[in-house]
């Protein structure tokens, strides 16, 4: 699974790094960023990534693969 954030959509709602701090961090403006290359293998973390995606009000999180 590869997780990315669409920076043009992200408005810094803060849900992703609240739900899955192992995958998401924030920048100086408080916008979400993906840690590292965004590749997630661990099953538990994958479900956290999906949960973050389902909670993002701006629909800014993209997930490729499963």
């Amino acid at each position: 699974m590869k997780v990315t954030i669409d920076a043009a959509r992200c408005q810094g709602q803060g849900r992703c790094f609240g739900i899955a701090p192992e995958i998401f961090d924030f920048d100086d403006l408080g916008n979400g960023v993906v840690i590292g290359d965004g590749i997630v293998d661990d099953e538990e973390l994958k479900s956290k990534a999906r949960l973050a995606q389902a909670n993002c009000p701006e629909h800014a999180i993209n997930i490729e693969g499963n």
Binding site: G12, G14, F17, F26, D27, D28, L29, G30
Partner: peptide, 11 residues
């Protein structure tokens, strides 16, 4: 907005 966001960022 960019001026004030750093003050309100999670850090």
């Amino acid at each position: 907005r960019r001026l004030i966001l750093p003050a309100f960022a999670p850090g």
